[in-house]
Simulated assay, not measured.
Amino acid sequence: MSISPADVTFRVADPDPAAAECTDLTCSTAAELLDPAVVVGTVLASVLALVAFAYLRDARGRCREECRRVADEQDAFEEFAAQLRDLPAGRPTGMGPSASPRGLPAGAASAVPATGRDPTLDRVKRAYRETVMSVPHYEEEYDDDFHASVAAELGDDAAAALIASDGLTPDLREGLTTRTREAVRRRENLTDALDAERDRLDDAETRLARIDRERRALAEHLDGRVANSFDACADVWRRLDELEQRCAAVASDRQAEIRDPPLDRPETSPSFYRYLYGRDPNTDHPVLAEVAALVSRIRADRERVEKRIANAQ
């Protein structure tokens, strides 16, 4: 019977101190792994295992791609902030001195443009378009207009101020600069979270690759070096069962990470993992998918051993 990853459910067992005890098969397998031919086979198996972990490979690629995009956006906002600093700010006719607590003109959303509009504000808009809206992935990722972009990144009041104000006042420039710095900090925090996720992926792959190497070694041990006795097959079956329990531990740890993501997202936004992997048509939980795939291989091996046990009786 073939087993697909979709059929796999995880069970988490308590650590068993007796599992570390050296059985006859365990000791003989460890000794045989010192044989040069077995070492070569183990190295080849580890390479094949790394190739087999396609979900994790794709997840790391997604992290790298997102890191590049976030870095581009951070650079763009930093450049926009630099251009804001270089623009002259004055108090055009009709603009009162009051400001909101965050530095943007009070009542900007309902302000009416005054006559004699200062062209500096047009330079602000052009600077935003030439920096933030000009990152290579902008159209693919966002594809929205100027007002929607400013509202999403700097706030609705900032977007309204850029439309309704008749010039770049010191308060407006300060408010825009503050919001732009916040956008930079969000990218910095996101980069840290992506780095943490890559570390988590590497840790999961290290553990799963070790399990898969042991699985392959058991199969080779049973096929080439041990007679198909009942006891030998039963020992291999038991160790395969232990490998599945270790897979369950990896899955349990990953589920805890999913409940505690490296970055909290607003309630109105997708979760960190859905944001990062949601566009993948295969899975938005690559570690769990990889565990399921490995468990399916372990169970297929165990079924093969069960047939040998039946024949040995």
Rank of each mutant, 00 (worst) to 15 (best):
D157N: 08
A312M: 09
E78Y: 04
T169C: 02
D284C: 12
E130V: 02
R302S: 08
R246T: 10
A30D: 12
E205Y: 05
K125T: 11
E21L: 12
R254G: 12
D260E: 13
S134Y: 04
V43D: 12
L154Y: 00
C63R: 09
P97C: 07
L162G: 01
A293V: 06
G96W: 00
F53K: 00
A19Y: 03
L162S: 02
V112R: 15
R239V: 02
A217L: 08
T283L: 06
A183I: 04
E32Y: 12
L194N: 06
V250W: 07
A204T: 03
E290P: 03
S229M: 09
D143R: 08
P270N: 05
F230D: 11
T283M: 08
R246Y: 08
L50W: 06
A248G: 15
A49S: 12
E290T: 15
G90C: 10
F146C: 05
A71H: 11
R85D: 11
L263C: 02
R11T: 09
I309R: 15
T169H: 06
D284P: 07
A13D: 13
Y277R: 10
A19R: 14
V47R: 12
S269I: 00
R265N: 07
L48C: 01
R259V: 00
P119R: 05
R308Y: 11
E130I: 00
P92K: 10
L218Q: 14
R129L: 15
E188P: 00
G107A: 09
C63K: 03
R216S: 15
G96K: 08
A148E: 15
P36H: 09
L190Q: 12
A13I: 01
G278R: 09
S100H: 11
A152N: 06
D260A: 14
R129F: 06
D118T: 02
A108I: 01
A164R: 15
I211P: 08
G116K: 07
V51K: 09
D212Y: 08
R129A: 13
G116C: 09
R179I: 00
D241N: 14
E290H: 05
D118P: 06
H221I: 04
S100K: 06
Q255S: 07
D122R: 13
Q313I: 13
A196R: 10
I298P: 06
R274Y: 10
E214L: 07
R185F: 04
Q255A: 07
D212A: 15
I298H: 05
